[in-house]
Design a protein around this nucleic acid. Structure first.
Length: 226
DNA sequence: GCATTAACCACAG
DNA sequence: CTGTGGTTAATGC
């Protein structure tokens, strides 16, 4: 197996940019790069985890099988780390990661990763920064999910996709109706109906998975009011 | 009561 | 995999 040259990687994370050449060699020796097709599982809930994953390219959903149903926790867009909390925090994964589009991920040995955390403060700082931003986003997401009605939750996610994932008001949905429902805690029928309703109101234009936001202002109002 | 919201079921493309 | 209609339960005037 050939070692990966992390030093020459053009897709280095902000954290890895703080590693010295020696550390980059160590990372390269312990790191494996893997490609995932749409729908392939990168890591699985309840399975033993001994790697930190750096998502180089692609889009991923994090999901948990809950007591009642499957819940999509959130989407994650490259570049980002996956599984830091679940690999550092416990032996087994508390959630799964599944690719939503062709993706490239680096699997990093947990021991090597931990060593960088201890030895290199600039590396650690960037990791903590990413974790903190994630937590803030989770809290925001949580309160919105709990305190708004279904139209609000749907509107919020459509805006999220446009603003945070695609940086564009016209895009193809990376999720089907069922997954959309799992993301906003509702049924697939309700998602179907609400997308049709939003289209009838000329707030969005929807054709299969192709979505265009027409009246962003109104969509934002719906997201806020719930 | 009456209206609204949204889940569940069934069925058809 | 989606969209729609019917039904039903919960909640709030």
């Amino acid at each position: 197996m050939k070692n990966i040259s992390c030093a020459n990687c053009l897709l280095k994370s902000k954290a890895v940019k703080n590693l010295n050449n020696n550390e980059l060699d160590l990372l390269g020796e312990s790191c494996v790069e893997a490609f995932f097709n749409k729908g392939e599982t990168i890591f699985k809930q309840n399975a033993l985890s001994s790697n930190i994953i750096y998502l180089q390219k692609g889009l991923v959903k994090l999901m948990i099988d809950g007591p009642q149903r499957t819940q999509i926790l959130r989407l994650k867009k490259a570049p980002c780390y996956l599984g830091v909390p679940t690999t550092m925090g416990d032996k087994v994964n508390h959630y799964s990661a599944v690719a939503l589009e062709p993706s490239v991920a680096c699997f990093i040995d947990i021991a090597v990763f931990k060593n960088f955390l201890r030895e290199n403060p600039d590396f650690s700082y960037e990791i903590i920064l990413e974790l903190c931003r994630n937590e803030l986003e989770q809290f925001r997401n949580c309160i919105h999910l709990v305190q708004t009605q279904t139209y609000g939750r749907l509107a919020d996610k459509l805006l999220y996709l446009a603003n945070e994932i695609y940086n564009c008001d016209e895009f193809d949905l990376p999720l089907n109706r069922n997954e959309l429902a799992d993301l906003i805690c509702t049924s697939r029928e309700t998602v179907s109906r609400m997308l049709s309703d939003l289209a009838n109101e000329n707030i969005i234009d929807i054709n299969g998975k192709h979505l265009k936001i027409i009246d962003k202002q109104r969509l934002e109002n719906i997201s806020l009011r719930g």
